[in-house]
């Protein structure tokens, strides 16, 4: 139910990562952390303080970091690599493809500062293509949690799963709404079961979708709201359950319109249950400098944009 999701305050998803990294490190001595000169940004210091020998500082050399992680994983370690999402994916795509994914190494690629909400640093650092790149890689699990608690839970869950994972999170403080204990890779969280329109959101935009859903419900529109933290493997059953009831869908992501969550959902629907769909996503452009909230609004990812997309798709459904 929508009213069950109350923000317990704002915290950054990357802080959830840092806390959980320390906790999985304490629980499992095979867990290691690697960083390419962004320890403070990735919130890795607590892990380093407690397990200094299990931390590898590679310097500003991301390709080498991914390769070292593959070697560590070959020997049975569980390496978590940390840098910005931009340098975790595009910069090292080939290393991920060959040394990690094709070689089926148990490497956890942990990527902070994803998307527009990185803010003032601007488009050089605001990657909006990473979900697309990573979901194209065979065998890669792609997870984009929505808040501090869900990032914390995801960071722990991936240690228990054998295989390459891309874990995407962000920089800003963000409303914390989820439980920090429940997390199942590949299992969508149904936040509300409605009948008029399905809204499927991932990452930070779950909050915008939740606010939009509340506004829509206040207008008498019944919303089926899904928090889809795992984009690959995608919970097709949950999506089809929802859309078979509402007959239309809005997808919301802090990512390009091409290749991300929206396309993943469209793929499922095209093969199983073709339905009107609207995308809340960046429309094939780069970002720019600015504060996170202003950027989300300028690029069409705000709460009002989710509402407008829902109204539009309802109209198309007829």
């Amino acid at each position: 139910m929508l009213q069950d999701y109350i923000s317990s305050g704002s915290k950054a998803t990357r802080d959830g990562f840092g806390e959980a990294l320390y906790e999985v490190g304490a629980q499992n001595e095979n867990v290691m952390a690697l960083c390419a000169d962004l320890v403070a940004s990735l919130k890795m210091q607590k892990f380093i303080d407690h397990f200094p020998t299990r931390f590898v500082q590679t310097g500003i050399a991301e390709a080498n970091m991914i390769g070292i992680a593959a070697g560590l994983a070959t020997a049975g370690k569980i390496p978590y690599t940390g840098t910005f999402a931009n340098f975790s994916t595009g910069r090292v795509y080939d290393q991920i493809r060959q040394s990690v994914a094709y070689s089926h190494k148990n490497v956890k690629i942990c990527a902070s500062h994803a998307g527009l909400t990185l803010g003032e640093d601007g488009a050089t650092h605001q990657i909006l293509e990473d979900i697309g790149m990573m979901r194209m890689v065979p065998g890669m699990t792609v997870i984009n949690p929505c808040d501090f608690n869900q990032t914390k839970a995801a960071t722990k869950a991936i240690a228990e799963y054998y295989g390459p994972v891309y874990l995407r999170f962000g920089r800003p403080n963000w409303p914390n709404i989820m439980s920090d204990t429940k997390f199942e890779i590949g299992k969508a969280v149904i936040m509300n079961e409605g009948t008029d329109v399905t809204i499927i959101a991932t990452g930070h935009l779950v909050w915008n979708a939740l606010e939009a859903a509340r506004n829509l419900e206040a207008k008498g529109i019944s919303v089926y709201l899904i928090n889809i933290h795992t984009i690959k493997p995608l919970d097709e059953e949950a999506i089809l359950d929802a859309v078979s009831k509402t007959k239309c869908v809005v997808t919301c992501e802090e990512h390009q319109i091409n290749g991300g969550l929206g396309d993943a959902v469209a793929n499922v629907l095209a093969r199983n249950f073709p339905s009107p769909q609207e995308y809340v996503a960046v429309k094939d452009s780069f970002g720019e400098s600015g504060n996170p909230m202003d950027l989300l609004i300028k690029y069409g990812l705000g709460t009002a944009d989710v509402e407008a997309a829902a109204l539009k798709v309802l109209e198309r459904k007829g």
Partner: peptide, 22 residues
């Protein structure tokens, strides 16, 4: 580990070497 796309094997070897030391 797979190799063919060049330049990657030395990094992987280093990872294995670190693990052996640990």
């Amino acid at each position: 580990v797979a190799s063919g796309s060049l330049g990657q094997g030395l990094s992987v070897a280093i990872g294995m070497a670190i693990a052996k030391k640990l």
